[in-house]
Amino acid sequence: MWYNPSVMTTDRLDNNIIKGILFALFFIIILTVSSILVKPEYGEVYNIVQVNQKMDSFKNEIPNTIDVIFAGNSEVYRTFSPLQMFYDKGYTSYCMSESALRLCDALELTRASFETQSPKIVILEADAIFSDVDPHKDNYALPTNLIEDIFPIFHYHIFYKAFVPKFIYEDSVPMRTEHALRGFVQTDEAVPYTGPADYMSQGEQVRINQYSMKYLNMFRDFCREKNVALVLTAAPNAKNWTYSKHDSLQEYADENGLDFIDLNYHLEDMGIDWSTDTMDGGNHVSFEGSKKTTKFIEDYLEENYDLADHRGDPVYDGWVKDNEEYELYP
């Protein structure tokens, strides 16, 4: 029988207790050492895989060729097309964005982009700012977050995924597309938005919470330190964007002397038609919608910043080839 209800001698019991304590102690030491080894040295990151994979992809760009960084979550890669901007104006940009990317990770990607590039402008999309949780924490029960704080190995345990064998991604279609479109995600999906035209009056009253404020200030300070412009923007979003969010961010922009371009206030200027220009009933713009939003933002950049037109420069031939290959523009 595997179960043993027999009475043990005191010596034996003590011996077993010591063995048990030693076993647990060694395990705690292993967890502590591995936690020290895997915790990212560049600060607080939520999704280490998203961040590392994006960085890997971004490093394929020729150094010092990117002028504009778009930072944020999926709203960014649906709204702003770097390839279109190059085709129209010759400006180079990159969408440093991922699905449901948290603000702390957007900051980390922005910081990382300066390791190989010298961007002139950082454009931060607002959707990631209005999250109601600490960007660095999971929506777990409290003890799980606590244990992740004590032993970061539990949070960053997938660190090894950053090391992808080259043969895996060389011919990978998603990787190739990600790089060719500079992080923009193109889709033919279009599901009309059929709700009220004044969608911004819907929803609850919200303010930028303390967690987001912390990272927003870090964005501001980082851009000041690098002497680049930080522009806040909000993509057209009939599902989640409200006057309350707008006012809250406008207040922050005014207090800090930042530009805030809320595209929801320029729907008519851009010619957004909710029956064709959203891919999912108002949450993200469709490919057709992105043509209009990108046009708007590139015109804004042309008017307000002195960015170089790189068209015709042989260093940027890759951009032309990618556009020819994917046939997105004109």
Binding site: F23, F27, I30, N47, Q50, H157, Y160
Partner: peptide
């Protein structure tokens, strides 16, 4: 024996499908 147990436990900690992602 302990080394093998630690290896199994750490394999689960590192390669297990849980947490963010």
């Amino acid at each position: 024996r302990w080394g093998i147990w630690y290896a199994i436990m750490m394999s689960i900690v590192i390669f297990g499908a849980y947490g963010s992602g």
